[in-house]
Design a protein around this nucleic acid. Structure first.
Length: 415
RNA sequence: GUGGCCGUAGCUCAGCCAGGUUAGAGCGCCAGGUUGUGGCCCUGGAGGUCGGGGGUUCAAGUCCCCUCGGUCACCCCA
């Protein structure tokens, strides 16, 4: 166990599990491409200021960011989430609106690792900039919801609320603050002094003290301005029309401060509470402006790949696809035959693997069976044969020179 | 960042509480036997700085301290 290990909170994804990651990303790409989202590839690090615009009361930025100074004295940070980079790219490049993009990649947060919680995890996400049409909110949530469903997941729930906007949130905030101040000594120790900083966060506190104190507290959804209320009504009606199930959750508060209006989270009932969050997102109509761009509405979501796969495990769905080998070459005559035949099979477009190191027949046979290839080509003294592997069958002799054609024919018969 | 539990073979673990010959098992791996040259079965083999460092002791996998990593709760989130 001496030597190097992956840094705390990071991990390696090796075959066969890695094929599951790839299949998940491929499925996501296909799913959102159908709705007109193209892929955005942005840097994994940015000027730290890009993320600081996400809000100073968010832990992800305030205390969990991997920031550092580079050799040129620039203050940079590994991205702690995906939205800010896409928004920054929009401000810098100004693609035509609406701008719809998806992304995949690692994000970094300096946290205490735990099951389902890492210092580097991977997110899939989409962002749609340039429209405040509530139908776009519906599209975004429906895409996420449909993606979970396409994986065979049935225990992922969409929880939804509206956080209002610049017109109604400040007034609500004051009202909430006032309410909580009257009950300051009832709050848990942690939150007693955070009423001014972020009173909304207290609504989400799990401690009995805070829950009691905030039980009667006014809720944002009940204090929306007319426009936000209209927007939210269109959103819920749209989801219902499309058959996307959701639960209204007025206590929902998300970790990033930039959210406005529609805000949502996907949680899996199949996972432990501590890491049950499988994705989340919402509208961020002020973010582009905060990053120095023109006032531009936007909405998007980020989904945690590891959490999704944990959920798949818990629900017994979306297994890792195999390598999909067509044929495995066994050679007990020294290896030159395997070298040449394998090369010819591959050149013909087949997926072929072989054993090395002149192992025994038995060992090569075991490897062939393990490979899950349906066929084996067996090279022995003066003889070449083709065998079915998944069930015992007669070996068919073949001319060495015609082995590729023979394998192709046999594969055709098996399918 | 706070607290609890855990680190022994590639994997899953026993051994530690009451320190004492060459540290074990199952699975996996390699070789041989058996089998219709094939998944079972039988025999043998390779593989371990007992996470790392320090200490106590005649003697440490076992006791103590530190450290690294994992895990659980909190915090927070994907």
């Amino acid at each position: 166990m001496a030597g190097f290990q992956a840094p705390a909170g990071t991990f390696d994804v090796l075959p066969p599990e890695s094929s599951r990651y790839e299949a998940l990303v491929a499925r996501f790409a296909e799913h959102v491409a159908r709705a007109g989202y193209g892929s955005a590839i942005t840097p994994m690090f940015e000027d730290a200021g890009v993320f600081e615009r996400l809000g100073q009361s968010t832990d992800v930025v305030r205390k969990e960011m991997y920031d550092f100074e580079d050799k040129g004295g620039r203050h940079l940070a590994l991205r702690p989430e995906g939205t800010a980079s896409v928004a920054r790219a929009y401000v810098q490049r100004r693609p035509a609106l609406p701008f719809k993009a998806w992304y995949v990649g690692p994000v970094f947060r300096y946290e205490r690792p735990q099951a389902g919680r890492y210092r580097q995890h991977h997110q899939l996400g989409i962002e749609a900039l340039g429209s405040d049409d509530p139908d776009l909110d519906v599209e975004v949530m429906a895409l996420a919801s449909g993606f979970y469903a396409s994986l065979g997941l049935s225990q992922v729930r969409l929880r939804l609320t509206s956080l209002g906007d610049a017109a109604c949130r400040p007034a609500y905030r004051d009202q909430l603050q006032h309410h909580l101040e009257g009950r300051r000594d009832q709050l848990c120790e942690e939150h007693r002094d955070r009423i001014e900083e972020n009173p909304l966060r207290i609504l989400d506190c799990k401690r009995e003290a805070c829950r009691a104190a905030s039980a009667e507290a006014p809720r944002m959804v009940g204090n929306l301005c007319d426009q936000c209320q209209g927007h939210f009504a269109r959103v819920t009606a749209g989801l219902t029309a499309l058959g996307v199930g959701f639960d209204l959750d007025p206590s929902l508060v998300r970790g990033l401060d930039y959210y406005t209006r529609t805000t949502f989270e996907f949680t899996s009932d199949a996972l432990e509470f501590a890491h049950s969050g499988a994705g989340g997102g919402g509208r961020y109509d002020g973010l582009v402006e905060a990053l120095g761009g023109p006032p531009t509405p936007g909405i998007g979501f980020g989904l945690g790949i590891e959490r999704i796969l944990l959920t798949c495990d818990a629900e017994g769905t979306f297994p890792a696809p195999g390598l999909g080998l067509d044929v495995f070459v066994i050679d007990t005559t020294g290896g030159e035959g395997a070298r040449d035949v394998t090369a010819r099979l591959r050149a013909a477009g087949l997926r072929a693997d072989r054993a090395f190191d002149q192992r025994s027949w038995k060992s090569q046979m075991k490897a062939a069976l393990r490979s899950e290839a349906p066929l084996a080509v067996v090279l022995e003294n003066g003889q070449t044969s083709i065998r079915t592997l998944q069930q015992k069958g007669e070996a068919e002799c073949a001319e060495r020179s015609a082995v590729v054609e023979h394998v192709e024919k046999k594969l055709g018969e098996l399918r």
